[in-house]
Nucleic acid binder design. Structure first.
Length: 796
DNA sequence: CCCAGCCTGGTTTTT
DNA sequence: CCAGGCTGGG
């Protein structure tokens, strides 16, 4: 983290006449542009802030300034995008304005803040105040059920696809009715052979409503609906919030933008901060258009540009600029720095992914010694969460402590979801997904057939599933089922009786005990079983922490009176349902190497950054096909690069197992694109590679492998054996292949077309759906690589 | 009708 | 590597 900026102070700080000199001392820490943005607390303000330009500093100081100017903290609504950013902001503000004031601030993620408001106002739009928040998995499960009920083919109507389309519609505030009336969308769906999407959308919405549940997108949609449909609510919040601030504005979608605009409409004291070059959430509806709209909607906007980078070395800033310059769609600006040139950008080229991990771990080990870095100075950034595993292994082997962020978050673990489902169901009986999850866990003899039958009644009668369960006696079921379901319902009802009497911790313990869930988990003595127990224990600990802290806390209301904070189970669920990563354990990340996706690294900075897995189809993702997709990948790369303060290392594996295929990719698209600059940086020759650590031959693992390669997963091995038996190469192909000076084909394999040329670039053209080749080839003398292509692709 | 255990298929990124 | 689907035994 930065301690002090070495800023050239061109202006003498302008002390405010009415205030003691030191009152606004913090303003001295800002450069002239930053300071102007901070001091402009009224009217529409737009701050275009490049990476490392002190954006968070501007935001936090601006909030402090608003408060110091005599405005109550609860007049300020500050919205961010991720929990992590929100948390960091809160901490920094607290340091300036004190804990008391910071606590009254309305600061958090869009989703969290809107959920908080909706809790209070939900009944005005026909939702219970104890509504559940469905996570993605809940939503997809519900969709899957609906698709099945409608007798649609789940292979065509993939829950994933349906979910994404619905989510898209919601992010653009398109209702099911509007969707049906929208010719373009309907045409599109028809074309994609999924004409029933609009219908499913409507059904899904009704089911959520019936279950008293909102999904992530509903928090936005319903917030907007609330403001549009209930004038007194609109009035209330417009009067409540005198100042609005939005961070990472480039990542807002239409729904978010319209909500912000509506809330700010009365006073128009709205400040947005963003950087179009760091827009990396288009996939969930974010649009840079919002920046253009903002300028149009607020013609008298004051714009400030923060272009000086205080974070990174010249080498890093130059690389970043170089990368982003390939993008056509961007607002012109020049990020510069007065920092040192710094070290050259390093490139690691590894044979395969586990080798890559070893080399990176080795490099961290070495750099740490040489530069007296601490573990916490390092970050490994990757494109997908799944990539973390090999790096974890490699770091463990070298005894380097690390922490993985994101990934399978605590709350997505099965045992935690089960427990949470009980808690959710107790607070909101109508929560269908929770009910389905636990009605037969632990085993109560209520199987799939029974649940499906109950669900059919629920659909036919347009009632929540709980209603059927609660009145099971009225329906045609066997006595055994009736007893089982009846017992379950009574149990939940018993829990409900204690909702008011007991705090979240007491009630959760009761639920764990009486539901038999704790017992079921404790009876499992396997390794996973033990870890499950620990997780449940951790959950209980966190609930205890929650109740304890709430009991200490007295909430100061806006009229000055005090009230006891709510420590009930309902309050706990509300607070916790939008947490994705348990970053509660700050001490947990003390002096550890940090591993995370590039997306979650946004807003953070580290002295030394490794960007790994820079391979075609991985980073950039193979899902990125269109020009604008690629531009988003490039922005993502830009974000990753600009996290680095002093050292940046890029890394890729020559060949990587992906979905059963081993892909040779000598140069990733990115590396190639920045290569003129990159060559300059490493001294003109790509041969100046980082030394390999560990094994003398990076291809060791291949030599030791069996004929397919020891990294092939067992399932694929089985498959491959089957398929290989079926595929025979044509004589011509074998001949062509053998003509290649360095490539040899193994008998029994088929290759469509291979070309080898342009130095070390292996180019493979053509496409096939089947696995076809195992190839040995020479590389720098004796090295051998085995390749198996599930799908041929152009690489190089 | 339920359940345990095997098998297969799928994996971007976040709230 | 995990979750969900399928199958065969109870």
């Amino acid at each position: 983290m930065k301690t002090l900026f070495d800023i050239e102070q061109t202006d003498e700080p302008k002390g405010n006449d009415n205030q003691p000199e030191n009152e606004f001392a913090y303003l001295d820490e800002l450069n002239p542009v930053q300071r102007q943005a901070v001091e402009q607390i009224t009217g529409p303000v737009m701050v275009i802030a490049g990476p490392g330009s002190g954006k968070t500093r501007v935001l936090t100081y601006r909030i402090a300034h608003i408060i110091k100017k005599g405005n109550a903290p609860y007049r300020i609504l500050s919205l961010t995008f991720t929990n992590k950013a929100a948390k960091e902001m809160k901490e920094r503000i607290e340091k300036i304005v004190g804990e008391q004031a910071a606590r009254q601030l309305w600061s958090g993620t869009f989703h969290a803040i809107f959920a908080r408001i909706l809790r209070v106002e939900a009944e005005k739009i026909g939702y219970p105040s104890n509504f559940t928040i469905y996570d993605t998995q809940d939503s997809k499960n519900l969709l899957k059920n609906i698709i099945k009920e409608q007798n649609l083919n789940p292979d065509i109507y993939k829950p994933n696809v349906v979910y994404n389309r619905i989510s898209n519609a919601k992010n653009n505030l398109i209702s099911p009715q509007a969707y049906k009336a929208h010719a373009g969308l309907m045409e599109n769906d028809k074309h994609a052979n999924v004409p029933k999407i609009a219908d499913l959308y409507g059904r899904y919405m009704r089911r959520c409503r019936q279950a008293g549940a909102m999904d992530f997108d509903d928090l936005l949609v319903n917030m907007y609906g609330l403001l549009k449909k209930v004038p007194e609510v609109l009035e209330k919040y417009q009067n409540k919030f005198h100042f609005l601030m939005v961070d990472e504005f480039q990542d807002t979608n239409l729904a978010q933008y319209l909500i912000i605009r509506t809330l700010a409409d009365k006073r128009k004291n709205i400040c947005i901060v963003g950087d179009d070059a760091q827009s990396i959430y288009a996939f969930r509806g974010a649009t840079i258009e919002n920046i253009l709209s903002f300028e149009k909607d607020y013609p008298n906007v004051k714009t400030f540009r923060l272009e000086q980078n205080y974070r990174s070395t010249k080498a890093i800033v130059r690389t970043a600029n170089e990368v982003i310059n390939y993008n056509k769609k961007q607002i012109a600006k020049k990020i510069w720095t007065s920092n040192d040139d710094g070290d050259k950008i390093k490139l690691i080229e590894a044979a395969n992914d586990s080798d890559e991990a070893k080399i990176v771990a080795g490099s961290i080990f070495e750099t740490r010694l040489r530069n007296h870095f601490k573990n916490e100075d390092f970050a490994i950034l990757y494109r997908t969460n799944a990539q973390s595993r090999l790096f974890e292994e490699a770091l463990r082997k070298r005894n380097i402590p690390y922490r993985v962020f994101g990934g399978l978050s605590f709350f997505q673990r099965k045992e935690i979801k089960d427990m949470m489902a009980y808690l959710r169901l107790t607070v909101n009986n109508n929560d269908e997904e929770a009910l389905r999850r636990v009605i037969n866990y632990p085993k109560r003899g209520i199987g799939k057939t029974t649940t499906d039958k109950m669900a059919a009644f629920a659909v036919a009668e347009q009632k929540p599933l709980w209603e059927i369960a609660a009145n099971i006696q009225l329906y045609q079921f066997s006595q055994r089922v009736k007893t089982g379901v009846g017992g379950f319902v009574n149990m939940i009802r018993l829990f409900m009786k204690h909702l008011q009497k007991e705090d979240a911790f007491e009630l959760a313990q009761r639920i764990g005990r009486m539901s038999g869930l704790t017992k079921a988990i404790h009876s499992d003595r396997s390794v996973e079983g033990i870890s499950r127990q620990e997780n449940i224990q951790e959950l209980f600990n966190s609930i205890k922490e929650f109740t304890d802290s709430k009991k200490e806390e007295a909430v100061e209301l806006e009229d000055g009176s005090f009230a006891a904070a709510d420590s009930s189970l309902g309050a706990y669920l509300q607070e916790v349902s939008l947490l994705t990563d348990m970053d509660q354990g700050e001490e947990d990340s003390n002096d550890k190497v940090k591993l995370m996706t590039v997306h979650s690294a946004k807003g953070l900075e580290f002295p030394a950054v490794y960007i790994v897995g820079l391979e075609e189809e991985l980073f950039p993702s193979k899902r990125s096909k269109t020009q604008s997709d690629i531009e988003e990948e490039r922005r993502l790369f830009y974000v990753a690069i600009t996290r680095a303060e002093k050292q940046l290392t890029l890394s890729y594996a020559n060949c990587r197992y992906k979905f059963g295929s081993l892909v040779y990719s000598e140069k990733s698209r990115f590396v190639e694109e920045i290569s003129p600059l990159y060559l300059d940086m490493i001294g003109g020759k790509p041969a100046a590679r980082e030394r390999r650590f560990g094994s003398s031959s990076s291809y060791e693992s291949f030599k030791e492998s069996d004929s397919i390669g020891n990294n092939v997963r067992s399932a694929q091995k089985r498959n491959l054996q089957k398929k290989r038996a079926a595929v025979q190469p044509s004589a011509e192909l074998v001949k062509n292949f053998k003509a290649s000076p360095v490539l040899q084909i193994k008998p029994g394999c088929q290759v469509l077309h291979l070309r080898f040329g342009m130095g070390e670039i292996l180019r493979i053209e053509g496409a096939a759906d089947k696995p076809i080749a195992v190839i040995d080839f020479e590389h720098h003398g004796e090295k051998k690589i085995m390749l198996k292509f599930a799908k041929l692709m152009v690489v190089g």
